[in-house]
Write a protein that binds this DNA or RNA. Structure first.
Lengths: 347, 347
DNA sequence: CTGAAAGCGCTTACAG
DNA sequence: CTGAAAGCGCTTACAG
């Protein structure tokens, strides 16, 4: 078998010779063309097995023009190490690869950060049929680059795009924020603030803020926001927001944080200041990253259904390629109750 | 530009016509062949830019036989969700993709878990020039599958292989374990136990145990191990090991845990039993996963240099493909001191 | 149901 | 330094 890889390459002609049929019949038989008779197919398959033959995908793709491949780009911050990419995107990446595989597609993956090395001409190079872009919205240069790609006619789908007009999938942020806020209210918290950002390109934060504010209003409570400093690392954004909140002197007994990564910083800062969670202050995050389960204390959060997220992204892209519309945009989220927030009052 | 993707495909013949040269000159010019004169190259490059032309990689690969692509397989447990893959492997995956990109290679990524859908004939299908396998050693069927691939002549490199005879890269486990043990000893801990596994395929655990035992011996201390139950999830392995340790009645004041994931369970169990860390018991993990930084308390650990790990894996594979030997096998690790262990005595 | 032939778009000896 | 031509290994009309 080593010979098959190292020496003369086995082609469909070799299989044809062994099976006693023509090369075109080999191609049809292995592609599963129903026009081939069953006895012939059996002979061909057996010959291919004996010779350890596999179709050369480059030749097949050159001929058909289809690649059966999806490119996935993970955008990170320019200064960020690859080991420090938000684990949320790693989980999403895993789900996308799995979903693509379920649909019979290969995935080529690329981490992109520096504006001078952005790459995405996958379709022009016939490396992929389309592109899924995920990752931080903090890297504006990257988002502008991929937006342009789409305008040039490439097939692209996004997770949580900063641009509303693109083909995107997002968490059900509105419903999730309502769930989080309702959960805190039910637990007896009243002075609930929201750590968010409305100046950032991160539309998801705005959507979460709106859901929170809406639910607060329904209860006759006043929504109040603390804006993060986008220039800091996520964790430090959380620390600083808590410092700002306390410096502002407005009383609070719970915090809805629009991102788990930021919430981890919030928990650290509260801990260091001797403020006990969940007794003095309840905290709820958003995203369901696994670090939350080991935080001080374990973080209540809203977790999107990653498997659905992967499948929806892949299916949306495949439909876009096929020229069919796909209305689905929102991934369902569920509340994961942990120790950073009390349970419903009286429980 | 949209036309370039949607309508007639732009080829090197179109570029040749616009630049007023032959198709072969276009190919040479864009490939950077130094035989092409500078004025000619400039004209060709400009024509390609105008037409938004990119080389069809399928045609190029068919012709050259090289793919410029590395396949990366992440093995997970059969029952495991893709969102639950050990974050260590996600960090490693990011580093591998980055390193491959630095070497001018594309990466196709696949998550593999179920034994009936294992896939890896990347070279036979001419999808990649070689394969890097990372992930849990708990999935024995998967490791056997990829081992066989290598025996069939495929180019494969592994992270932390259960098989010593394969071409692998691992953390410098021996040195790391010595660092961890020395750190605990310096802090004044004496009854230091090691949570590990010697029956498992995970050779790295054995290597860490050996380094720990060696360092203990040098200090005249008795090494003692607690074996994990491989059937459990990593976190539960840690919880159970602590329970076993306490049930055994042997005194301990520090634990060196051979994996961060297991250590997170250890911390939770100690916390729930009211055992304070680092005062009553010091804890050190291994792997440098980011969740450790948010654990109760933040986990002291040994972190491999992920960037080196990615580069070493890619370079080892490329050398294997080129038929050249590569002696490098060990990735340097550094001690990351956090609150789960005291500092050196008197500090 | 099967076969002979064209052609996908490149790279690279070969010739000049 | 540049061009004409062969050929990589398939898929798929077309013919029978």
């Amino acid at each position: 078998m080593a010979k098959a890889l190292r020496g003369h390459r086995i082609t469909s002609f070799d299989v044809a010779a062994l099976a006693g049929v023509s090369q075109s019949t080999v191609s049809r038989a292995l592609a599963g063309d129903p026009v081939v008779s069953e006895p012939t197919r059996t002979r061909v398959v057996e010959a291919a097995r004996q010779l350890n033959y596999y179709v050369d995908e480059n030749a097949a793709r050159l001929r058909t023009g289809r690649t059966g491949t999806i490119a996935v780009v993970v955008i990170s911050r320019e200064e960020e190490d690859h080991a420090d990419v938000n684990p949320f995107y790693f989980s999403l990446l895993g789900a996308i690869c799995a979903a693509a595989s379920n649909r019979g597609h290969e995935t080529i993956v690329s981490f992109q950060a520096r504006p001078d090395t952005l790459a995405g001409r996958y379709e022009e190079q016939r490396k992929a049929d389309g592109l899924i872009v995920i990752g931080t919205t903090a890297n504006r240069a990257a988002w502008d680059y991929y937006r342009e790609l789409g305008e040039d006619g490439a097939h692209v789908c996004y997770w949580g795009s900063p641009f509303d007009d693109l083909d995107w999938i997002r968490s059900d942020n509105h419903q999730g924020a309502r769930l989080a806020t309702g959960h805190l209210i039910d637990a007896g918290y009243r002075d609930i603030v929201c750590i968010t950002s409305d100046g950032s390109p991160q539309r998801q934060f705005t959507e979460r803020w709106v859901g929170y504010a809406e639910r607060m209003g329904e209860e006759g409570l006043t929504p109040r926001d603390v804006q993060i400093d986008e220039r800091l690392a996520r964790e430090d954004q959380g620390r600083k927001a808590v410092a700002d909140l306390i410096a502002g002197g407005v009383p609070f007994d719970a915090i809805f944080v629009c991102s788990d990564q930021i919430a981890l910083g919030v928990l650290l800062e509260l801990h260091e200041r001797g403020i006990t969670v969940p007794d003095q202050v309840g905290v709820v995050g958003f995203d369901g990253i696994r670090s939350g389960a080991y935080a001080i204390p374990p973080l209540t959060t809203l977790e999107p259904d990653f498997q659905s997220a992967g499948t929806m992204l892949v299916d949306k892209l495949l439909k876009q390629i096929a020229g069919r519309p796909s209305p689905e945009r929102r991934v369902p989220v569920r509340l994961v109750e942990r120790a950073s927030s009390r349970g419903p009052k009286g429980t």
